[in-house]
Nucleic acid binder design. Structure first.
Lengths: 202, 202
DNA sequence: ACATTTTTTAACCAAATGGTTAAAAACAAA
DNA sequence: TTTGTTTTTAACCATTTGGTTAAAAAATGT
C-alpha cells in the first residue's frame, strides 16, 4: 500500500520536473502536471499542498544532485588542470541526465536568488569555490598559467559546460542541422576542458 | 501632440522590456508594466491591444537588433581574430541592453522554433554563419589555428557570450558577492575574445 | 469479509489577471 | 475659445487558476 503511494508521488515529481522545466514556475499549470502524471488535481493537492511546495521539492532535489558532487570536485586537492577536467565531466555527466536543471536555475533563481543561495551554502559550494579560486591565483602567481581573474575563469568554464546543454535544441537546428548531437555532447566534456586549458596554459 | 503620444509608447516599451526581462512572459503583469511606465492599465491597452502583441513587439524589435548586425559581422571579410572580437562585442552590447532575449529564445523558441527560425533566415544569419564556418576551416587547413570543429568553436563563442548574461543574477551572488558586475560585464567582451583566441592560436 | 488507504468525481470558491468600457478630465493646437 | 487628442478614473466582465471539499469508489492489506 505504501508502495503505491510512493510510486504515485514519484510520478508526480517526474511530471512536475518535466512541466516546470518546459514552462517555468509561473507558466506551469497544476492541471497540466496532474495530467502529465496521469492523475487528477485533487490527488495532486492531496500529496503536495500547493504549487510552491511542489516546486521547492523538485527544485531542491535537482539542485542537490548537481551541487553536492560539484562541491567535492572543487574542494579536492587535485592539480588544477585535472580539476578543470573533472569539473567539465561532472557538469556534462549530470546535465545530460538532468538537462532541466539549468533552465530551472536560470529562470527561477534569477527571480528568487535566496532559495538557490541557501542551497549552495548548505552544500558547501561556497567554501569549495573559494578554495579553487585561491588555487587558481596561486598558479598565476607561480607563473604556471596565464594571468586571468579566477572568477572569470570559473565563469567561462560554467558557460562552456552549461550553455550547450541549455541551447541544445537550438544548436541542433542552426549549427548541426538536425544531425545527432547526443554523441557530440558526450565527447564535449573533454573538448571543453582542452579548450579551457589551452587558453590558460603558458 | 504626436510627440507626447510617441513618448508614452516608448515609455511603455522600455517598461515592458524591463519587466519581461525580470519576470518572463508568463510572470510579467500588465499592471506592473503600466506602473513601471508611469501610466495606467487602460492606456496601456489603448496603445497595445494585449500582452501577446506587446511582447511580440518588444521581442522582435530586440531580436532584430541582435540578428541583423550578427549576420553582418559573420559575413564580412575581416580577418578571423578580428571577426571573433567583433562577434563578442556585438553579443555583449546587445545582450546587456536586452538580457531577456536568451531566456526567451531558450525557453519558448525551443518548443516552438518557428518564429525564431523565420527571423534568423530573414536576417540572413544562416548563410553568414556558413561563410564563417568555411573561413575557420580554411584557417585550420592553412595551419593558422589549432584544429577544432568550427561548429564547436562557434558554440563556444556563443556560450561565453550568452551564458554570462543569462546567469548574471546568480553570478553576482556566487562569484562576485554583490559587487557591481555591470562594469565586469562591459569589459568581458574583450576578455572573452582574448580567451577564445588564446585557445585556438598556434 | 473488513478495515484502511488510495484515487476519483465533481462541484465549488476566491483571488488574480487580462481585457473592456464609457465618461470625465487634462492637454495641446488652431 | 473651440477642437481634437491624450490620459485618467473607476467600475466591470470573463476567464484562468490555485486550491478546497465531501462523498463515492477502487484498490489493497489482514
Amino acid at each position: 500500500m505504501r508502495e503505491k503511494s510512493e510510486e504515485t508521488q514519484k510520478q508526480i515529481l517526474d511530471a512536475a520536473k518535466k512541466i516546470f522545466a518546459a514552462k517555468g514556475l509561473a507558466g506551469a499549470r497544476m492541471q497540466e502536471i496532474a495530467d502529465e502524471a496521469g492523475i487528477n488535481k485533487a490527488l495532486l493537492h492531496y500529496y503536495y499542498r500547493n504549487k510552491e511546495k511542489l516546486f521547492e521539492q523538485v527544485f531542491e532535489g535537482a539542485i542537490r544532485k548537481l551541487l553536492g558532487p560539484l562541491a567535492s570536485f572543487l574542494a579536492d586537492d587535485s592539480e588544477l588542470f585535472t580539476k578543470i577536467r573533472n569539473l567539465c565531466h561532472h557538469y556534462y555527466n549530470v546535465l545530460i541526465e538532468y538537462p532541466f536543471i539549468p533552465i530551472f536555475v536560470l529562470s527561477e533563481a534569477s527571480a528568487n536568488p535566496d532559495r538557490f543561495l541557501r542551497l549552495m551554502k548548505f552544500e558547501g559550494v561556497v567554501e569549495a569555490k573559494e578554495k579553487t579560486r585561491m588555487q587558481i591565483q596561486q598558479y598565476i602567481n607561480e607563473g604556471k598559467i596565464r594571468p586571468i581573474d579566477p572568477r572569470e575563469l570559473l565563469w567561462n568554464i560554467m558557460s562552456l559546460c552549461i550553455f550547450p546543454i541549455v541551447s541544445r535544441p537550438i544548436a541542433v537546428e542552426i549549427l548541426y542541422s538536425n544531425d545527432d548531437v547526443s554523441e557530440v555532447l558526450k565527447q564535449r566534456a573533454d573538448r571543453v576542458a582542452d579548450f579551457v586549458i589551452q587558453s590558460i596554459k603558458m
